[in-house]
Every structure is written in structure tokens, then in C-alpha cells.
Computed example of a mutant assay.
Amino acid sequence: MQKIKTALLSYGMSGKVFHAPFLEFHSGFELLGSWERSKKLIQQDYPNVISYATLEEVLESDAELIIVNTPVGTHFEYAKKVLLAGKHAVVEKAFTTTVAEAKELVALATEKGVKLAVFQNRRWDSDLKTVRQVLLDGVLGEIVEAEFHFDRYNPLLSPKQHKETANDGAGILKDLGPHLIDQALYLFGFPQAVYADIRTTRENSLVDDWIDILLYYPEFRVRLKASFFVRKANPAYTIHGKKGSFLKPRGDVQEDDLKLGKKPDLDTWGTESIEKEGLLHTEIDGKIVQGKIPTLQGSYYEFFDGVYNSIVNDKEEPVTGEDGLRVMQIIEAAIQSSAQKKAIDL
């Protein structure tokens, strides 16, 4: 099997938890190492890899694929350098800080003939995979409304400075917002208009930490919400159709398992507790049906497998640069909407 030589641009939480375990597990990747500015940690976990001292060392290495998993405000600068070096790139969310930056990266990848993917791993959460299957099954009838939540209770400011200082990449809109927005676009397509309310609710916070975004579709509406002041969680996904409803709590176990150091596999990985199963209440063949729906298995492996096939077999990226661009268009429209207190046509 052809191996893709791959390097990371940081080995903090994202590199250690979300990327390296899958690059090691997937037989199609060879992890070369990571750029590490101060702490040299990657060799503790992977003794045979390199800790690169500079970005230039990474760009001049044998790496064919580089994962841009640095703070959001650096994504455009670093991804552009990666693409100009003729290397494939995976860029974490938020893809960029502006639509103009996203457009430039997409055009540059096309010009250089390299692959550009956005790391939207939560398309492969057990929650969303199950919601998508319910929609594909058509058991809810014509959709009337959907509401997605990514809520937490965490009134304390993050110790990571780049997350709490006023900069173009900080704030919940560009942290949790891209997950919610990408999931909505993945399931329902691009909306006609956006209305948003963006707030700061934590004491001494300098960045937005509460969002309420309404996406307008011709026949239905999708609401996306995220907050740090939710002790009792709402369902992560609530979908109402003309025949019935589906409510699903957040239950994907992959992030928690990865943080515990568990290694991915293809058998039991991403299997959540039955207590987190979603509730379906609908009408099927003239009969009212109410009960729990088994949750599908989550698998971030599928994202990396998609990246592998995009490079080796010239398939479309699992999440394209254009997908990232569309998310940024929603984010910019949301910022404009909140400032002007009106819906923005897209």
C-alpha cells in the first residue's frame, strides 16, 4: 500500500488527540513528525519521528501532506506556504478568518494541482451519522425545522491566550460555530439567508462566547446554538418534520476516548452508550411509532481514509476547500447580521 509521508504543524491537543493516532493507525500514512516551537513532546509518543524546529524545515522535508493544526489566525498564512511548496494540505477549522482568504487557498490548490481538505471530523460523529440516516430514511416527512446545539457549562476563560484575546480567529463563532455550520450545510445544503445574534456572556471575556444562528431555507429553518452557560444540556439535534420528530443527545465518545489515550480500531471504535440513543416519534405506514433509534458507529478514521483516497486515487477530498469556503460565507454573514440586527441574503 502506498504510504503518504505526513507532517503536523503542531503537537498540542489537536495533534496528539485528533491526528497522530489516526495517521499511525491508517496503513496508508507515514507520520514524519511535527513542528514544535518550544515543548518537544512528539518523540515521547512516537520515538522514530522528527521534531522540526521551524516551519521551513517542514516545508523542505519529504512530507507530501501537511496538516495545518495551528491557531485559527495562522491558518491562511501557513496553508498558503504549504500549497506554494506543492504539498497537499489538511486545514483545521475554522478554515480561515475571512471569505477572501478561503477563496485564495481554494484557487491556489487548484493552480498547484494539490489536494486541500478541511478537518471537519464531526461529520463522522456517531450523533450526526445517525441524524443523517434518519433524514435519508424519510421517516420524518417534509422537514419543518431543525435545531443543533453545541453547549457546555464552562464560565472560566481558557488558559490558551489565542482563544481569549481579541483577534480574527478567536471566539465561539469560529471555534464551535464551524462544526455546527458545516453539519447543517452537509445535511441541508446552502441556505438562502442568515440571521444571527452573537454575544459575550462570560465575565471579563474579550471574545464572543454565545451564538444563535438561523439559516433560512425555502421550506424550513435551521437554528444553530452554542453557549458556555448550559448546565442541563438540550438535545444536540432536534428535527421536526410533518410526520414526526427526532431528538438526539450528544453522545459521541471518540474525543473522550482519544484524550484517554485509547487507540482507534475498526470494530468497536466510536460505539456510544445505549443511554444516548435518540428518540423517534413519527408515523410510518399509518401507524404511530415511538421509540429509541440505535446509534450508528462514529469513525474519524473515515475522514483520514477519504484524504488518503483523494491523494492516491485522485478522489474528491472528504471535506473540500469549497466546503470550508461555504462555512466562512455563513460566518461572515452571521457577523454582518448580528452587527446590523437583520437577516443577510446569500
Rank of each mutant, 00 (worst) to 15 (best):
V58G: 10
I198S: 07
V194L: 12
V139N: 03
A53Y: 02
D182H: 12
T295F: 03
P47G: 10
I330F: 15
P71S: 02
K87W: 11
F148N: 03
Y237P: 05
D257V: 00
L32E: 04
W124T: 04
F303V: 04
V222G: 07
L176C: 06
D62S: 09
Q329L: 07
L156N: 10
Q254G: 13
R250W: 14
G86D: 01
R223Q: 13
Y195H: 13
D209I: 03
A333Y: 06
E255W: 12
L23T: 01
N154S: 13
I330M: 12
Q120V: 14
K225S: 13
G169M: 04
K341H: 13
P318L: 03
V90C: 09
Y11C: 03
G306I: 05
F25R: 10
K115Q: 15
V91L: 12
A226R: 00
H88D: 13
F95G: 04
A334M: 08
D323S: 06
L176Q: 09
R122A: 02
P47Q: 14
E77Y: 05
T165F: 08
A233M: 09
D182Q: 11
K3Y: 01
Y186Q: 05
Q290H: 07
E92W: 15
E142S: 09
L280G: 12
L136T: 10
I213L: 09
K287L: 15
G324F: 12
D127H: 05
E317N: 15
G261C: 12
T200Q: 10
R221S: 09
E92G: 04
A193E: 11
I311S: 08
V307E: 05
S10Q: 08
G244D: 08
E277S: 10
G33N: 05
F18P: 00
D252K: 03
V144A: 11
F304L: 01
K292L: 15
K40P: 11
N234R: 06
D323Y: 04
P294R: 02
G261Q: 05
S34C: 07
D125K: 00
H240P: 00
S310L: 04
L140A: 07
G286Y: 09
E145G: 06
R123Y: 15
T320S: 15
V307Q: 05
S27L: 09
V194E: 11
A102W: 01
K263P: 01
F190I: 07
R231Q: 14
E111F: 14
T110Q: 14
I330D: 07
W35I: 03
L83F: 05
H281A: 11
V90R: 03
L157M: 10
T54C: 04
S310K: 04
E332C: 14
